[in-house]
């Protein structure tokens, strides 16, 4: 058996233009339905969500940055795993991916409270697609029901497909090019990169070593596997604060 992987991502905030292609690709890939009538930015489901953050100054000193936030795939004391009463969350030792099992989930939402990154989403409604649109669902991902929590799992359907392809060639080891999450594939600016952090030859592992690289809420010690980077000081400062003050800067 091959050595264990530690899949992670690097995100160049200075390249992200906030277009939202990653969010669309994610929803298409993972069979996330369009928002019901009553959904808003707190009750929607966006496994990856691009936040618009700013330096808290008024025009014309105001500067904006876009920060894509997905499940940070915490590598140490993964908070959601600890609190789940159902063992519906686990960390795959083989890939390092934090998995969420909707079938086991009770819907208690402890994990959402525990998650420091607001990266978990609750299904307030049964998924509904406009008539005919269910034909466009991805067969590699099962749609979820109401009352359960879900989150990013680095497009696990694609991991399965890559494994299947390797098996067809008689191999256990997948080809790295076959496993790229939908958001990374979709990013038109190349701000997102994906790969094995335990292999120092990968781009992500090298990105993680850069001086301008940082992780969200690094001080709480969850060892997330999403490595952000920005050359702007104020962007790096925001990442270490628990939350921007108030909601004034965040539209809506």
């Amino acid at each position: 058996m091959s050595a264990n992987k530690r899949y992670g991502m690097s995100i160049d905030i200075d390249k992200c233009n906030g277009c939202g292609a990653c969010m669309m690709a994610c929803a298409v890939e993972n069979n996330i339905p369009p928002a019901p009538e009553a959904a808003n930015d707190r009750r929607g489901v966006t496994w990856i969500r691009v936040y618009k953050v700013d330096n808290h100054l008024a025009y014309p000193e105001r500067r904006t940055a876009f920060v894509p936030v997905l499940c940070q795939q915490c590598g140490h004391d993964t908070p959601c795993v600890h609190v789940c009463p159902q063992q519906a969350v686990d960390v795959d030792p083989e890939t390092g991916i934090v998995g969420q099992m909707p079938e086991r989930c009770l819907g208690c939402r402890y994990c959402m409270v525990a998650c420091p990154y607001h990266a978990r989403y609750f299904n307030w409604w049964d998924p509904k697609w406009p008539a005919g649109m269910e034909k466009t669902l991805n067969p590699d991902v099962a749609p979820r029901m109401r009352g359960v929590v879900e989150k990013c799992n680095f497009c696990h359907g694609r991991w399965h497909a890559a494994q299947q392809k390797a098996a067809a060639a008689g191999q256990r080891e997948i080809d790295a090019a076959d496993y790229v999450p939908a958001c990374v594939e979709a990013c038109p600016t190349g701000a997102l990169r994906f790969g094995d952090l335990s292999d120092s030859s990968t781009e992500v592992a090298q990105d993680a070593q850069r001086p301008e690289s940082f992780r969200l809420l690094e001080k709480i010690g969850t060892e997330p596997k999403i490595h952000y980077r920005s050359r702007r000081d104020w962007v790096r400062e925001i990442a270490s604060a628990p939350r921007p003050e108030g909601k004034d800067g965040l539209r809506g």
Binding site: E94, T95, I97, N153, H156
Partner: peptide, 9 residues
Amino acid sequence: EYSCLGCHK
């Protein structure tokens, strides 16, 4: 033995 997502989707 795998994790849940080894066999679930």
